[in-house]
Amino acid sequence: MKREVPLIITFVAGAVMIVQFYTLPLSWLGDLFNDFFNIIVTCAYVLGAASLLIANGRKIQRQAPGWGYNAVLLLSLLATLFCGFCIFPQGGLPTDAGTPFDWIFQNVYTPMSAATYSLLAFYIASASYRAFRARSAEATILLVTAFMVMLFRIPLGELLWEQLPILHYLDIGDFIETWIIGGFNTAGQRAIMLGASVGLISVSLKILLGIERSYLGSAD
């Protein structure tokens, strides 16, 4: 029974979602099931917070190497929760401009998140240095294409291109956009997307029919 009940719930929920997609009077069922999902996800945040508290609390208790970082994480978590739940004007919202929560969002969360994202520029450089080498014919094609897209889709690259004799008659920006990105790249992406979509339908079907049960954990 431990496995049968979740399998039945999965099948019923999946079947309802498929049927409601094609039938107008039953579309409310889809919204209802999605509401259930949102409620479960929201409740699961408690699990996430508990996991954070336990995992980091243990390290602080044991004074494991680097426990100071765990303490900073827990303090930040509790401080943000406190600001979000307790400090905001009466009748207002924690997200209103000028509240401590908004200050944390604007001055801590946003710059830190942006800084992590901006690391991509550095990692793209180091990955390119390591990966783009003309080891074979295929790798050379990839290298030349990547090089063209990287260099000639920026103002400086376009300026350089315009200085080249004869070649400057070709609109390099348009060529890259139409042929490389709009042609080869889109064709390749579509092929991967089509294959992945069929795979996705297959996985969904196997889950609905109970053939794929990994998500329930091992059988014994």
Binding site: I192, M193, G195, A196, V198, G199, L200, S202, V203, E212, S214
Partner: peptide, 9 residues
């Protein structure tokens, strides 16, 4: 790549 992920299982 792509569908290979779904075929992995």
């Amino acid at each position: 790549i792509g569908e290979e992920l779904y075929a992995a299982s």
